[in-house]
Write a protein that binds this DNA or RNA. Structure first.
Lengths: 231, 231
DNA sequence: CGTTGGTTTGATGGAGATCAAGCCTCGTGG
DNA sequence: CCACGAGGCTTGATCTCCATCAAACCAACG
């Protein structure tokens, strides 16, 4: 666990994260409340049930937000991409696990202090509101993806979503990218079994929609077909 | 469609909705930007794809937020209870349908004007942020409810959630309440077929967990069992 | 009345979970 | 350097749960 003073100057998300809404001075003030932390793939940032809550902005890498039910099955509730914000500011205890799915770097703040900053800087509140609306939208897309759809639709839809997330231009998907998630994670996210996810990848490859390149690499050989299969 | 000037004075959610964070004067100013509207069960408040977006606070009744996919199947993404807020302020077009599932009353604002109000009144931004966090949490609970669970778990979990929502005390469920949704709506929400939902209700009644009283009424005869079945 | 929309119940088939092996791909240590 | 495991991934066989089709039922309402 590496900790550092914040160095906003060369932060890769300095003009996309919530804090980008602040002036230089305000940002400096905010930066003194938190610290940076490096996470290796698999490291836990927040644990469900923790008393002292915190929140964080993701600088690089990727996080998953998940809950584990009684019988130990993990359900992924959300993926967080760089510039994303995690943490439950208004809740005394945290409800979900937040774990790095890739080597990552985050900017961590104690919840109470961040809350005070939100009260102090209206622009920060508005930026978070906007981000929160996006999260809510993403969350609803996931609900859409999971409910009453066949396995092939879910997997195809998921691959498209990841391709869009991987691409720089928001609208057109990347032709070639690395999946941040393991098969098990994808299964947990889509509400399928690992085997079914694997079989759908096989089928998509056989149908010529994608090509698997290594364990994690995906090439979209026929995005239109993929789109159609996601229906 | 009935329209009225806003009358905050005797509004039933005047101290729970987002606008409750405002002072009397501020609230008066905000109220001049919007108007009230009555909705009958089944009336549409916002339609997906509408150009001029608006947002609204629910005063009484219940709304559903849903999307309809290509083949006409409706997926319910969220239920909105009184004091809840709906609308996509930051998006040029609305993505989802918002429909009343019970006779309702709302306070409607044009999105651009409301956005200006948010910028003008920092307290409003913070209140919305809090509400948005709650929505996000509810949305994630729904994801949890839908993913990789059996039909009986989903229905039992849903009934418990509705019982909690119907109860005044947030923690303990109401023993007797009316479901706001039809079987079809529940099916759309849980990702099941109408028939399966009906069968699960039948099974829960046979097992002694609930009793159906009329088409919509539910009595929890054995909440512990229900809890266990929801696992 | 008949009609209409929601609900229940039954019978059947199929999609996907589960169980069970094999199979790559690393990383570790002999 | 190769052997050896340990995870993660793939593939196959079987079985279960739920969607689908179909029909009866019920209440509200014109």
């Amino acid at each position: 666990m590496a900790r550092d003073a914040l160095a906003c100057a060369e932060c890769p998300v300095r003009d996309r994260a919530a804090c980008s809404a602040l002036t230089g001075d305000e940002r400096g003030e905010l930066s003194r409340l938190g610290h940076r932390r490096l996470l290796k793939r698999g490291d836990t940032l927040f644990r469900a049930g923790e008393q002292e809550t915190a929140c964080a902005t993701l600088i690089r890498g990727a996080l998953k937000i998940s809950s584990v039910d009684a019988d130990g099955v993990e359900r992924i509730l959300s993926l967080v991409h760089p510039a994303g914000f995690v943490g439950e500011m208004f809740s005394p205890v945290s409800h979900h696990e937040v774990v790095a799915v890739a080597d990552s770097e985050v900017c961590v703040f104690p919840a109470d202090r961040y809350e005070r900053a939100v009260a102090q800087f209206p622009a920060l509140a508005r930026a978070l509101l906007r981000r929160s609306a996006e999260d809510l939208f993403a969350s609803r897309c996931l609900i859409n993806l999971m409910g009453r759809r066949t396995a092939i639709q879910r997997v195809a839809g998921f691959i498209l979503a990841m391709a869009n997330a991987a691409s720089s231009s928001p609208c057109h998907p990347a032709a070639r990218f690395e999946l941040p998630l393991s098969r098990g994670d994808m299964a947990g996210m889509l509400g399928l079994s690992i085997e079914t996810v694997s079989r759908q990848f096989g089928r998509l490859e056989k149908d010529g929609a994608i090509r698997r390149e290594g364990a994690r690499g995906i090439r979209l050989t026929n995005p239109a077909l993929l789109q159609r299969l996601a229906s």
